[in-house]
Amino acid sequence: MKRALLNIDYTNDFVAEDGALTCGVPAQNIESNIIKLTKAFIKEKSEVIFAIDLHNENDPYHPETALYPPHNIVGTKGRELYGGLKAIFENVSEEDEKYIRWIDKTRYSAFAGTDLAIYLRSRGVEEIHICGVATDICCLHTAIDAYNLGFKIVMHSNAMASFNPIGHEWALQHFEKALGAKVI
């Protein structure tokens, strides 16, 4: 069965201590797990997708403008991948480059308004592995859409973090109980 890894929003604005909308220490503590997971998928020639939040400054039409401070603004350092993950993305070999993709997402789910489902289906992917932030927001909405599209789902609990510890724990249970996801 072909599988893909979705790295959700592991950027400076969501992870760094001075990030505009940081999950802080919980997100920083999963960096080595995200790197290890990403390297493993690259090594086995599985699809690796960096699904990264994209915003324009002061966009009056985007619903998140009223909910959160400005974050992941186009062209800013805040939108860059955090820590060692950035080096992996920037230094991938030419041979492995065809398995790695960056998608801009403008909603919580990596599927909303993107061609992600078409991309995965065209490559025969049946199982999606998800890591990143925030567990109970973007990871959750992406998992729900993956479920609704019929993908098998694996959530990597040691490679996910949230602003809200209670929301993180709730989402992990929801993945398993309501979406039938495998949580490891």
Results as ranks from 00 to 15, higher is better:
Lys2Trp: 03
Arg3Glu: 15
Arg3Met: 08
Arg3Trp: 04
Ala4Thr: 11
Ala4Cys: 13
Asn12Lys: 06
Asp13Met: 12
Phe14Gly: 09
Val15Asn: 01
Leu21Ala: 08
Cys23Arg: 00
Val25Pro: 02
Ile30Glu: 03
Ile30Lys: 01
Asn33Tyr: 01
Ile35Asn: 06
Lys36Arg: 11
Lys36His: 11
Lys36Phe: 09
Phe41Val: 00
Ile42Ser: 14
Glu44Gln: 05
Ser46Cys: 10
Val48Phe: 14
Asp53Leu: 14
Leu54Cys: 12
Glu57Arg: 13
Asn58Met: 09
Tyr61Lys: 12
Pro63His: 08
Thr65Gly: 04
Thr65Met: 04
Gly78Ala: 12
Glu80Ile: 10
Glu80His: 00
Leu81Glu: 10
Tyr82Val: 06
Gly83Gln: 05
Leu85Gln: 10
Glu90Phe: 06
Asn91Ala: 02
Asp96Trp: 00
Glu97Pro: 00
Arg101Leu: 09
Ala112Asn: 10
Asp115Gln: 12
Tyr119Trp: 10
Tyr119Thr: 13
Leu120Glu: 12
Val125Asn: 14
Val125Phe: 01
His129Gln: 01
Ala134Pro: 02
Ile137Tyr: 02
Thr142Lys: 03
Tyr147Arg: 02
Leu149Phe: 07
Leu149Lys: 15
Ile153Asp: 04
Met160Gln: 12
Phe163Leu: 07
Pro165Met: 03
Trp170Gln: 06
Trp170Phe: 09
His174Gln: 06
Glu176Lys: 10
Glu176Ala: 14
Gly180Ser: 04
Ala181Asp: 01
Lys182Val: 14
Val183Glu: 03
